[in-house]
């Protein structure tokens, strides 16, 4: 009896959030699935068309490549930042943390536009390089994969830093001290004692960035010059440009399944529970 009413209470607590998820997420997603199999005709026609299209294949490969490189870049840069903040920032930690979170206050759109200002043909970077005589003609820094990657890494970086930082801040400095006291060099102590403890943070940062990158739209659309066509942009293209809801929905379904597969594969190698829920 007591247990039952307890359970009811928990359900009542999550009900509002659950209702919002079901109404505004689960239902629309189901709608997308329906459209994928029914527009313009019922069946798997859209998926056949998708499988046969080399543009779709290219776009998928591109999407996974961009997401993977973005993830790697974010992990390397983010690890260094998180490591520096958690081990050396001292009293400046709150400030550093604020600086990491600060970009969230500016919309992705504006941050991506800023990169256009920086990386453009007559942008800050090119102008500076030209003024200092390092280059004669402007470098192509955007409207290609390079520009997309630079901006994507920038946009995604906080998502990599935050889980790693939370994880690292939970690691006592006693371990590295202990390792060194027991005869390990600084590098050995880092590699064998510190790093293994940060793996959960690294994994959760990696998953977060990779999954978010797979569905990323604004930045590649703005900086890709139309030729770095990631799946999400391709979906928009199908729906906005050709009003081809069927194929667009089928692509969404495919992306959703691909993302789920990534998580499943990741689950084989890492403990998702500890990577996503526990930060220590």
């Amino acid at each position: 009896m007591f247990r039952n009413s307890d359970k009811m209470r928990y359900w009542a607590l999550i009900l509002p959030a659950l209702a919002i998820m079901v109404t505004f997420y689960i239902f629309p997603v189901l709608g997308i699935w329906e459209i994928a199999f029914t527009e313009p005709t019922t069946g798997v026609g859209n998926f056949v068309q998708m499988a046969e299209s080399s543009a779709v294949r290219t776009s998928f490969i591109l999407t996974f490549r961009v997401a993977a490189i973005t993830t790697l870049g974010c992990l390397i840069l983010g690890y260094v930042v998180a490591y520096a903040i958690s081990n050396f920032a001292g009293k400046l930690t709150p400030l550093m943390l604020a600086l990491v979170i600060l970009p969230f206050w500016v919309s992705v759109l504006i941050r991506s536009f800023s990169w256009i200002v920086l990386l453009g043909r007559s942008g800050l970077v090119n102008d500076t390089l030209r003024d200092t005589g390092l280059i004669d003609s402007p470098l192509r820094l955007m409207h290609n994969e390079f520009g997309v990657l630079v901006a994507m890494i920038h946009v995604m970086l906080p998502f990599a830093i935050l889980p790693m930082l939370t994880n690292m801040r939970g690691i006592s400095d006693a371990y590295v001290k202990a390792a060194r006291g027991l005869g390990a060099s600084e590098w050995t102590a880092f590699r064998q004692v510190y790093f293994p403890q940060t793996v959960p943070g690294v994994m959760s940062g990696a998953l977060l960035v990779f999954v978010l990158s797979l569905g990323f739209y604004v930045t590649p659309a703005l900086l890709g010059g139309g030729r770095v066509l990631m799946i999400s942009e391709y979906i928009t293209y199908q729906i906005q440009e050709f009003l081809n809801w069927g194929l667009g929905s089928a692509l969404s379904v495919a992306l959703l399944i691909a993302t789920a597969l990534v998580l499943l594969i990741a689950a084989r190698f890492v403990n998702l529970r500890s990577a996503l829920l526990e930060r220590k």
């Binding site: 006693a174 001290k177 390792a179 060194r180 027991l182 064998q192 004692v193 403890q197």
Partner: peptide, 27 residues
């Protein structure tokens, strides 16, 4: 520290949580 060859026991033990007891002692 690593060149002084002292054995050390720490407050809170500081056993490496990612290693087994055996690996800790072998470290």
């Amino acid at each position: 520290p690593e060149q002084r060859d002292f054995g050390m026991v720490f407050q809170g033990y500081a056993l490496f949580p990612t290693m087994t007891v055996r690996d800790n002692v072998a470290f």
